[in-house]
Structures are given as structure tokens and as C-alpha cells.
């Protein structure tokens, strides 16, 4: 099963490589990994998407907790949660195609954030599925460049990952 694990860690050099190293050394897979400081500058928050059987996910959370820099973690997938990913897509936009691209972008609630006479750059936020669907909807030949942020997630309601 797919799991989203959020981690609060000491904001120290090398913290990221400890997590990445753990995953490669133990052969766990990482689908995506994002990391950034939090409102508390001594902490950074990492969101990790991985897949595995229940046993493997149990080992992954135990091994992560064992890392001395990890302060706290939460498996978002244990409860209701919101998952978001941001994607920037640069597409060739010329002639009649420009109108059509604008329409597709609107349907997906995208925003065109940069325009030249030959291209659009579209910002889109949502779940991974939605971003995939948007890319599907585009003519592949028009896509110049795609950047995805990787998943971040937060629990619904009162449940929260904080100290």
C-alpha cells in the first residue's frame, strides 16, 4: 500500500542524507520526498511517499524513529488527511492552441503564471492523480517541461504533527 509519512526532524546539515541513506541501505522505495524548514527554524518537516506491505511500513517507521535526528513522525495514511502536490508545466502555446490550452488549464483550476508568444507556464495544485490527469489531457508533443514538487500532506481535523 501507498503511505505518506511526515517527519519532524532537527534542522541540521546531514539530516536529509540520513533519511535518504536509510531508504537506500535497507532497500525501501521512495516515490517522493520533500523537505523544508517549519515555522520553528530549528525543525524541518519532511514528507515521504513510499510503498510496502504492512510489515515493511512498520519497519520503515521504526527505523525512521530510531534516527537520532528524527523528533516525531506521523503516518498520514493512518487517518483522514489532505494530500497536495504542486506542478509547473511549460507548454508550447501557439496560434489556435493557445485558447484550447487556457480552457484545459481552467478545467483543472490551473493558473497561467508566465506567458510568451510561444509558451504558457501553468501552475496546478492537487493530488497526484489530478496532476497525472492534467498531463494526460495535454497533447504530449506540446509539453516542454514539467516540474513536480512532490507530495506534502496534513491530517484532517484536530490531528496534527507538532511538538
Amino acid at each position: 500500500m501507498r503511505h505518506i509519512i511526515s517527519i519532524l526532524m532537527e534542522n541540521e546539515a546531514g539530516a536529509l542524507s540520513r533519511v535518504a541513506g536509510l531508504f537506500s541501505a535497507r532497500g525501501y522505495n521512495i516515490e517522493s520526498l520533500t523537505v523544508a524548514p517549519t515555522e520553528d527554524p530549528s525543525l524541518s518537516r519532511m514528507t515521504l511517499v513510499t510503498r510496502g506491505t504492512d510489515e515493511i511500513i512498520e519497519q520503515i517507521t521504526k527505523q525512521l524513529n530510531k534516527l537520532v535526528d528524527v523528533v516525531k513522525l506521523m503516518d498520514m495514511t493512518d487517518g483522514p488527511h489532505i494530500e497536495r502536490e504542486m506542478m509547473l508545466t511549460k507548454v508550447r502555446a501557439e496560434g489556435d492552441g493557445r485558447e484550447e490550452l487556457k480552457r484545459v488549464s481552467d478545467i483543472f483550476r490551473g493558473r497561467i503564471i508566465d506567458v510568451t508568444d510561444k509558451s504558457y507556464t501553468i501552475e496546478l495544485t492537487g493530488t497526484g492523480d489530478k496532476l497525472d490527469a492534467f498531463l494526460q489531457a495535454l497533447d504530449r508533443a506540446l509539453i516542454i517541461e514539467v516540474v513536480r514538487s512532490g507530495v506534502s500532506g496534513i491530517a484532517r481535523g484536530e490531528r496534527a504533527l507538532k511538538l
Binding site: 546539515a13 546531514g14 542524507s17 540520513r18 541513506g21 541501505a25 537520532v68 535526528d69
Partner: peptide, 14 residues
Amino acid sequence: NIGITRPCVKHNFL
């Protein structure tokens, strides 16, 4: 040294 020893220490510090 931090990178080389990371997988075989409980923890390391620079």
C-alpha cells in the same frame, strides 16, 4: 567522514 560512517554508526556529529 560523516558520509562514510553514516550507515555504520548509531549517530555522528560534525
